[in-house]
């Protein structure tokens, strides 16, 4: 259901007889099993320790006693806001840059190489450095203080390379015939982009989005110094707000007896991620469908 808009991909022949084919099949299946095993181990651990402490109240109450008791309602709200700011900034920036790289620059031209190189470096910047940088630029220099805005903007810088790379890959995967056909029909490049290229590149964009949201939701070090530590319900984007990960880190590493709620919070975070992934793909599918039937 999430396959590319191209006609369904043929399944490859199954019955290989030569030994290489069989060995690879066995290897690929064992890797998948190993992966699943590790996943079940880690998530199983989380669920086993966290689930007993989960309740509806945990989601709707404010934390008490440094987080050992009470719930995580304000932390959930802050997390949503931080990720929201992050996407609101990084999506246009990321898609625009990807369009530039894939459509409006020759691959080997100097500007494209510079931008791509700097993005590759950006992808390697450690989250703690993003934290220090965000603190200096957004919190102090631009005067946003410890705020959801500072945190979201810092995360936007961080997820940008992921978003750009996968959107660019998506655009590159669109066959050149589409572009030629559009040009032959006299479509402007703007129209080609909106009507044809972006819809066709959606799968790439969606992968980037999911990876980016995952990265943003799971970030700790960059947020500790920017969006901060305050566990109160935020009143605006200029308030400090503690994210789920900062909460988990504080409870697990800094608050004696905070472990149970750290696990419970981690379960909420992982569930949230699952829901967001599913929604993202569903929305992307629907959007894709509409776009394609219209054009």
């Amino acid at each position: 259901m999430r396959d590319a808009p191209a006609p369904a991909v043929p399944s490859l022949p199954r019955g290989g007889t030569d030994w290489a084919d069989r060995a690879v099949t066995a290897a690929v299946w064992s890797v998948a099993l190993l992966f699943t095993g590790v996943f079940l181990w880690i998530v199983g651990d989380l669920v086993r320790h966290g689930l007993p402490h989960l309740s509806w109240g945990f989601l709707t109450d404010a934390p008490m006693d440094a987080g050992r008791a009470g719930g995580i309602a304000p932390i959930l709200v802050s997390t949503f806001l931080i990720v929201g700011v992050c996407l609101a900034v990084s999506l246009p920036l990321g898609v625009g840059t990807a369009v530039f790289l894939a459509e409006f620059s020759r691959g080997e031209s100097l500007p494209a190489r510079l931008v791509r190189g700097s993005l590759d470096v950006l992808a390697g910047v450690p989250s703690i450095v993003f934290g220090l940088f965000g603190n200096a630029l957004f919190s102090l220099y631009l005067g946003m203080g410890f705020s959801i805005l500072s945190g979201g903007l810092t995360l936007a810088c961080m997820v940008l390379p992921i978003l750009i790379r996968s959107t660019e890959e998506g655009l590159r995967a669109v066959p050149d015939d589409y572009r030629k056909a559009a040009a032959a029909l006299g479509l402007s490049r703007t129209a080609t982009l909106w009507r044809i290229l972006l819809p066709a590149a959606t799968p790439g964009l969606v992968v980037g989005l999911v990876l980016g949201i995952g990265r943003a939701l799971s970030e700790t070090a960059a947020l500790l110094f920017t969006s901060g530590y305050v566990a109160r319900m935020p009143g605006s984007l200029l308030d400090s707000g503690r994210s789920l990960t900062v909460h988990i880190y504080d409870l697990a590493m800094n608050v004696p007896g905070g472990e149970a709620n750290a696990y419970a919070t981690a379960v909420v975070l992982v569930t949230l991620l699952l829901v967001i992934n599913m929604l993202t793909f569903q929305i992307a599918d629907r959007w894709l469908h509409r776009r394609i039937t219209r054009t």
Binding site: T97, F104, L122, F133, C157, S188, T190, L193
Partner: peptide, 25 residues
């Protein structure tokens, strides 16, 4: 076409902004 020119400048601007973050850091 004229619309395309503004699109090109927009994506160029966005690309420069994205590329500039590393320099800032």
């Amino acid at each position: 076409p004229r619309g395309d020119a503004s699109l090109i400048w927009a994506v160029r601007g966005l690309a420069v902004a994205s590329g500039g973050i590393v320099l800032l850091i």
